[in-house]
């Protein structure tokens, strides 16, 4: 290499690295500044997961869930059960939908012809049907296939199929979001990464994904809010979540007796709980988005 500065200076710099530098490293500063919001986000997720596990533990009989709930007044009890179940469904459907969306979105940008064809078919089919029909269809197929098999819990299996169908519907939308996110990263970015010798995996991890997520985050947040509301559809297959509880309560307490006030009160309460969940989730995602915002990488908005 050249005899000039280039080669000489670099060792010069490195030799001084032994010196005691008190300033925090870049890595440390990134972790410090992003720590707070990450802690809030993870705290929220942890709470939901904990609530879900608590509910699950009671459901499988580790403690007396019914007794614990009976301490609440009757309507409060139904609403609490419903809220817990809705949160529980969220913890399953959201990651599942995202996983499907990510995989198929990535496959949509694949260089392999077959990968693109399969992913496109998935997207069009699962996006082109009302989720409620998808859920009913999935449950039906499961029942037909596994009917008469004593070794499995048919109801649990069918419910699971319904949950997967809902996740797949959302996954089809998320696949399009992920695809657009991947395509939004200019080729110059990957080329530059290649030019400094990064491997394919490093480029994906450190260049493509971080840029893609910043662009996709608002749309993903949108989709999550839609998905939370769509968990109400699981009431049609016996999921004991909020909408199911509302239907149950109004049927038992109000509709038969024609009690108009009570019907309205029950559904407004249910609506408020949904509103609370969607509000918290969308605000959290907005905060995350603000925290990770980078000038010049704003998401394309309508």
């Amino acid at each position: 290499m050249g005899t000039g500065g280039t080669k000489d200076t670099t060792p010069l710099v490195r030799s001084s690295s032994g010196g005691s530098e008190k300033a925090p490293t870049l890595q440390e500063r990134i972790t410090a500044s992003k720590g707070l919001i990450l802690r809030i986000a993870f705290g929220g997720i942890a709470t939901v997961v904990a609530v879900f596990l608590l509910y699950l533990a009671g459901y499988v009989g580790l403690y007396d869930l019914d007794y614990a709930l009976s301490l609440l007044p009757p309507r409060g009890r139904a609403l609490t059960t419903g809220l817990l179940a809705t949160l529980g469904f969220m913890t399953v459907v959201m990651p599942l939908g995202f996983g499907l969306g990510f995989f198929f979105g990535w496959a949509r940008t694949s260089k392999v012809w077959l990968g693109r064809a399969v992913a496109t078919t998935y997207v069009e089919l699962f996006r082109g049907m009302p989720p409620i029909v998808l859920i009913a269809f999935a449950v039906l197929i499961t029942i037909v296939v596994f009917r008469g098999n004593d070794r499995i819990d048919l109801f649990a299996f069918a419910s699971l199929a319904g949950v997967v169908a809902l996740a797949a519907h959302s996954g089809a939308y998320q696949a399009e979001i992920i695809r657009a996110g991947i395509l939004s990263v200019p080729t110059g970015q990957t080329e530059a990464a290649e030019a400094i010798g990064m491997s394919k995996a490093t480029i994906l991890r450190h260049v493509t994904l971080p840029q893609m997520f910043r662009v996709s985050l608002p749309a993903l947040g949108n989709e999550f809010a839609s998905l939370i509301k769509d968990t109400s559809l699981l009431s049609t297959i016996g999921g004991l979540e909020l909408t199911f509880q509302g239907k149950n309560l109004s049927a038992v307490l109000a509709v038969g007796g024609g009690n108009l006030d009570l019907v309205i009160i029950i559904w407004v309460e249910i609506a408020l709980l949904y509103f609370l969940i969607t509000f918290v989730v969308s605000r959290t995602l907005q905060a995350v988005e603000r925290r990770f915002r980078v000038p010049g990488l704003e998401a394309a908005q309508l």
Partner: peptide
């Protein structure tokens, strides 16, 4: 030519 700095 177009710098290709990592935007994020």
């Amino acid at each position: 030519q177009s710098f290709n700095l990592f935007t994020h």
